[in-house]
Write a protein that binds this DNA or RNA. Structure first.
Lengths: 360, 360
DNA sequence: TATATTTGTGTGTGCGTACACGAAAATTGT
DNA sequence: ACAATTTTCGTGTACGCACACACAAATATA
């Protein structure tokens, strides 16, 4: 492996001078710069990232701003774990990660948490831009401070974010439509059950719904979709009542699509008699949802690889910090189709981290 | 971040002594060893892999022994690219990778290539164990030389391999059966078209077939499967004749399952009239197969994530070399269900590497 | 000639590794 | 019992490679 020392020798300059050229730090005459660059090119030189990382020790701090998770909403645990794993991996490259969690239903929490975050003066930020107005405020501050930021999970336009890591929600919904049709080829009505009303305009949930509907429209399929909006999608009697009475009134409904990670709640609310007759499709590989796959109450889950989203966000941003350049700013995670039989092979990483953390 | 120096100071010994304890290099009294270990434990210390790699510089050589790829058999290109990408990633950790390709249909080529490989005195070997008898010979040599080896893609028992990276073929076949049944719920006959006769007993292909058949048996489904074996599964007139005449004789066949990456050839061989009426399911996301998904001649592909297999093999073996320990010896890759709509989000990594390689 | 500017050099630092060597303890011989 | 020798145990330090700062030399400007 060729080193800076080699290059310096060949160019008959000192190592320091080569380093200056490599990092455009100035103070080098055009002539020597050209000479050195030519030699670098010729040897196809690239710095040894390991030595580089060692020398730069502890230069960067990435702060993350993502929704917090709890027992009811386990989804956000996965990105968090992915972030932890990523943090572990980049730690020795001089990148530190600190995490800030906000209440995903509360814009104030979002802003307040950000204020705490910005106090710590991070080098870069990874965030889930949940509310557009507040996001605008946040982004303004970041840009004033010249702090690069990366969006995760929710893709909204009109910002100068470094990149995006997440799923193409529209296509994911489209695929859900296809799977629904595949399971129920005969004309039928499908019910979309939607939790809380959209918070961001360009929300993942609404894009999934659009994709789902579009599948039937674009393929001229004689099935229809209807939507049921429920304010608090929990296992309360109120929700049960709403869902079951709706199903009773609409016997034409043969399939249920829940464009969020809450399908397990819907399934839990439905009366047995409906459950056994309906095809259910939902999103996200949370433990509760996986249990529904296992006991055959849900036929398909679409995974948006939440763990990978967290992990890749760290990886991508670290790449940006180290190389000052990003190869592929939009990182779309795969749209995984999960069924009972393949779910156990999916995202195994999640389980390793726990072990690694407690281990010496 | 806590360093060896810190530990040494706390234990009132020198750094060298701590290092000896860390690597069990002996020459340390039980008492001091215990003291140091306790402190290590207490601080949850782990060596900085970056500094470690820098200090060890160029200690390891991984040799890979995998089937070579060509235009007709593009499948093996992906693991190869995954290996290249992995090699790039671990290069700066002092791990070098050299690749050896053999003709997957020729046991002699397998052995001869191995002989060339072993001449280079590698530290460890990644191999695709294609022929059992020859594999036994190879493994004997490796074990005599105390060279650790990792199996990729084909999992055979009875060897002391460090681990395995690949897919659970049986379950993948089982899932293929489920998808077939989902597409054609009514009782029907399904044709399995098999290329060259099994080379290894515990072949991936035969496990997939077993899984496919078992799906129908275990779920008491009134469909049947039949098998057509073709010696050379290429686009020759001979193959076309065989396939089409078989389909003519067996109009009850409604679906075709090809448990290898050659479904595109089968599709190419079939007459239009059959093609439009048949449900086709195959394996592997090769460019040709993906084209078949796109033009709707194939409804499902199951990907065994070949790129990831190569990449993970390098990662896993590097972990073993650096830590002398492996967290999870059996690394099963996900069983990805590919359809027209989600194929483009799958395994994007493959495209990046090309750019990275030519880049300075 | 004095002063500012450009261009280049030398070196300590980050952290772990492993070797050469020194000190202390244990064993042997007489 | 005491010196001589071996064994055990531990220290000190020169690498590996890139980075960046303090400083020096060379050149340009006043």
């Amino acid at each position: 492996m060729i080193t800076i020392k080699d290059i310096a020798k060949e160019a008959q300059v000192s190592e320091g001078t080569v380093d200056r050229v490599l990092h455009n730090r100035g103070g080098v005459s055009k002539k020597t710069e050209a000479k050195i660059k030519k030699i670098l090119e010729h040897h196809n030189f690239s710095v040894n990232p390991v030595a580089s990382a060692l020398a730069m020790k502890n230069k960067y701090v990435i702060a993350t701003l993502i929704p917090e998770h709890n027992e009811l909403d386990l989804f956000w645990q996965s990105p968090y774990l992915g972030i932890l794993k990523g943090a572990e991996d980049v730690k020795s490259f001089g990148v530190q990660v600190t995490n800030f969690g906000y209440n995903q239903y509360d814009p104030d929490s979002y802003l307040n948490t950000f204020n705490a975050l910005i106090e710590t003066k991070p080098t870069a930020v990874i965030m889930v831009p949940n509310f557009s107005a507040e996001t605008k405020k946040i982004v303004n501050q970041l840009e004033a401070l010249n702090i690069p930021y990366l969006f995760v999970n929710i893709d909204i336009d009109g910002f100068n974010n470094i990149g995006f890591v997440g799923q193409d929600s529209y296509n994911a919904g489209y695929i859900a439509g296809k799977l629904m049709h595949l399971s129920l080829p005969k004309p039928a009505a499908f019910l979309i059950i939607q939790a809380r009303y959209n918070i961001t305009k360009n929300n993942a949930v609404s894009n999934r719904i659009k994709g789902f509907n579009d599948y039937f429209v674009k393929n001229n399929i004689n099935s229809t979709t209807q939507t049921l909006k429920i304010e608090n999608l929990d296992s309360s009697n109120e929700t049960k009542e709403k869902i079951n009475s709706y199903l009773e009134k609409h016997p034409e409904v043969k399939g249920v699509f829940v464009p969020s990670s809450r399908i397990y709640i819907v399934v839990d609310c439905m009366k047995k008699e409906y459950l056994s007759q309906l095809e259910c499709i939902g999103f996200d590989n949370t433990p509760q949802n996986i249990a529904c796959l296992q006991n055959d109450t849900v036929s398909f889950l679409i995974s948006q690889k939440p763990f990978d989203q967290g992990y890749e966000a760290i990886r991508l941003l670290t790449e940006y910090l180290l190389k000052n350049d990003i190869t592929n700013p939009k990182h779309y995670v795969p749209i995984d189709i999960l069924i009972k039989e393949n779910v156990k092979y999916n995202e195994r990483h999640e389980f390793n981290i726990v072990k690694n953390n407690t281990k010496h």
